[in-house]
Design a protein around this nucleic acid. Structure first.
Lengths: 223, 223
DNA sequence: TATGAATGGTGCAAAATTGGATCAAATAAA
DNA sequence: TTTATTTGATCCAATTTTGCACCATTCATA
């Protein structure tokens, strides 16, 4: 068993804090007590608490103690946490904003080899024999379009949406809503997108992507 | 029973790593511990770990330990970390995608009291005597438009962008680029946005916002 | 008001931990 | 036998942990 070190103690403290161990008193025990409790030197505890302090988990005051920080609603962590509660409808609305734009950028900016990668993902999805394989290459198709939009931030927003969707309970709806017929519809629509990209037609790509996402939305949300 | 050799141990370590045995602590035990655990000499463990190191499974640091490399690039944390490196140009491109849409949504969805809050922020910004106050209410103006777009996810993306901008080194550019003349330009453009919102004119609000962001982009990036 | 206990802040030198490297002897495989 | 691998041992270098002393601030209490 590896020895307890500063980073481990920081992780343990983080765990206990988020478990609400000291929420009632609003503070964590003195460093000297923690050191004794963990069976390490006080300096080690100090380094661990430093880690909690820099990321704003905790605030220290000389002579008073170490206090649990009020969660900052404007911190990255809080924003991401709130995003995790996004509804399918809100998510689809933003997808319909961003993905057509990404397709449009891609038609303008993509290299030929990037376009080939997009087409390849589309082709593999169409050829796939089972649903999990199709879904994987479907996701890859969309991802590769973002990848050649040449806007890294846009690409990362898409990654963010993908992660949020994957960990959302309502994502299961998608799987239930799947059928062979819909798969073929998606393939046709993907083909239209690929065609527009290869024609280097930004507006065509945008429209094709929008049409596809509207189909997805109908299938997913039923309207 | 065949003797445990370096390649066997490497395979076993690989198996345990991909099974997530040490994912939580982010590192594997010290070589000396592994040697003891596998009942083998430390040199053998070293050769095994060498194999994991050359293919990038693991990274070693003298005096610290052996750490799991390749943190999941599809984790929320990785995505956010990559977003922190967003360039001003990419960021502005996405703002020009999202904020006009938010303004359009707001024209349709906002309640009257929400619109009043937007107008209030605009008015306070115009009346502000010093630059920091103006900048605060300028940001608040944009934020309140997102707030009444009625899409929580869109609102949070805006929060995300705001945080990323505030912590970016290039954000200082904005402050350097400020002048009284530009402030007045921004006030006029904000006024146009407010007018369109109050007229409940989605397309007008979208266009006014786009025009404003293009001014901002010119001032920020000089084109 | 004055005092003392409790608490975080800082610095430092010694000890412990950990990966890096080498070598000769023992063992297995060809 | 020849060759390759494992073993056990030793030392080195980077890093962390430890133990200690002392300082500064806060707060309760005399």
């Amino acid at each position: 068993m590896p020895r307890l070190v500063a980073t481990d103690i920081a992780a343990e403290l983080r765990k206990r804090i988020s478990a609400g161990e000291w929420t009632d008193i609003g503070r964590i025990p003195p460093e000297r007590d923690l050191a004794e409790a963990f069976g390490v030197a006080r300096n080690t505890v100090r380094r661990a608490v430093n880690l909690l302090e820099v990321d704003g988990t905790v605030v220290r005051q000389v002579g008073r103690g170490t206090f649990l920080a009020d969660p900052d609603p404007n911190s990255l962590a809080s924003v991401v946490a709130r995003m995790e509660g996004t509804s399918p409808a809100d998510m689809m609305e933003i997808r319909q904003l961003l993905e057509p734009a990404a397709a449009s950028f891609a038609a303008t900016n993509a290299s030929n080899s990037e376009l080939n990668a997009v087409r390849e993902a589309h082709q593999t999805a169409c050829d796939s024999a089972d649903m999990p394989t199709f879904e994987h290459w479907d996701a890859e198709f969309h991802h590769r379009i973002f990848a050649c939009s040449r806007n890294d931030f846009l690409k990362e927003i898409h990654n963010l949406m993908r992660i949020l969707r994957n960990q959302s309970p309502w994502f299961e709806m998608k799987k239930r809503s799947f059928s062979e017929e819909r798969r073929q519809t998606y393939c046709r629509e993907h083909q239209a997108i690929v065609d527009a990209l290869i024609e280097r037609n930004p507006d065509g790509a945008k429209q094709a992507m929008l049409a596809h996402l509207q189909t997805v939305q109908r299938n997913l949300l039923g309207r």
